[in-house]
Computed example of a mutant assay.
Amino acid sequence: MSKVRIGIIGCGGIANGKHLPALKKLHEEVELVAFCDIIEEKAIKAKSEYGTEDAKVYTDYKELLKDKTIDAVHVLTPNRSHSFITIDALNADKNVMCEKPMAKTYAEAKEMVETAKKTGKILTIGYQNRCNPESLYLKEVCKADDLGEIYYAKAHALRRRAVPTWGVFLNEYEQGGGPLIDIGTHALDLTLWLMDNYKPKMVVGTTYKKLGDQKDCGNAWGDWDQSQFTVEDSAFGFVVMENGATIVLESSWALNTLDVREAKTTLCGTKAGADMVDGLRINGVKFNKQYVIKPDLNASGVDYFDGVASTPADIETRTYIDAITKGTELRVKPEQALVVTQILEAIYESAKTGKPVYLAD
């Protein structure tokens, strides 16, 4: 097919920091022909830096979707609007790359999946941490059954003092939550993907806002506005899968800890284990002796395309475009992202009610 014509809905930080630079590298295969943001200046700026000469600017995404020449859109808005913009785009015959998390609620995410199936359009979610060198290598380890049955795992998303103070990150209405839905979602997605286990049975969760009301907290991005801090500052989940496996999810923007790890996982299997504490480490026992292996991931062949080093965002974008143009398999399937949202919602519900949430009979 000719170049994929793409429209961008939401021209804020994630668009400029991740998606637009990655799409620009594929200029021989894609054209950025439309930019939409409720703040028109942001759309104009994105067009000037990344768009075609005749690219159009919109403040209403529904007007953008009327353009029948657009093949695909990137939905890069706050979490609240992921679902209805994606559903409208799919119904307008557009393929969709939607930023994480899939949606605020399981019901919204499920409708996104159902709409993609109904329309036959491609839908994927922006979980680029699957494309890190450690993740790609560890996935091959898991596929080869080198770890055996993975029955215990930890999903790590811990920051000591890194509360995002810009945009609407602190706004529960717009985002649906704080660190759990923001960065915990990456760690959980990565862990489920590596385990290849998408059947949760029961969830217990706790959320805390212990530091969000404090001042002078040494935040990486400066002091936050306490009056605007309407989400949790840390959240934790205990997930039991149908096959009996256990996942512990830990997430924080602000926590008194030195165990800082973000978008990382720890896997414990019957044959061996793996973690991402100091790069990728694989541990086990051989010839009656314990061992630790650290693969050299600096060599080419892990996260490279055509001999050129690629960022996780580059790989994510390449996979999405190839799915459109070549019909190749998506790296992140919407049905997988749906389960992530289901578990996150259950953690919030459990934290609110003080009771376990049962997801399977």
Rank of each mutant, 00 (worst) to 15 (best):
P78C: 06
L297A: 11
D259L: 12
T206H: 09
A162Q: 15
G10R: 02
T317F: 06
I125P: 08
G284P: 06
S310K: 14
A153S: 15
H186T: 01
D275N: 15
N91Y: 13
L258Q: 07
S227V: 02
T266H: 13
A109M: 04
I293Q: 11
D196W: 04
A220L: 14
N171D: 15
E114N: 14
C36Q: 13
D189T: 00
K24I: 00
A92C: 07
A144H: 12
I183T: 11
L138F: 07
K289C: 09
E28F: 06
K25Y: 07
R161Q: 12
T77I: 14
C98P: 01
A107F: 09
M97K: 04
I183G: 12
K326E: 13
N256G: 12
M1E: 05
G284R: 01
N95Y: 12
R160C: 05
K121T: 10
K355V: 00
K355C: 01
W224E: 03
G177Q: 05
H186W: 01
E29A: 07
L138Y: 12
Q214M: 12
G237D: 02
M102R: 09
M112T: 08
G12M: 10
D88P: 03
A43S: 12
V340W: 01
E232I: 00
V339H: 04
W224H: 09
A254V: 08
G12S: 06
L192Y: 06
V239K: 00
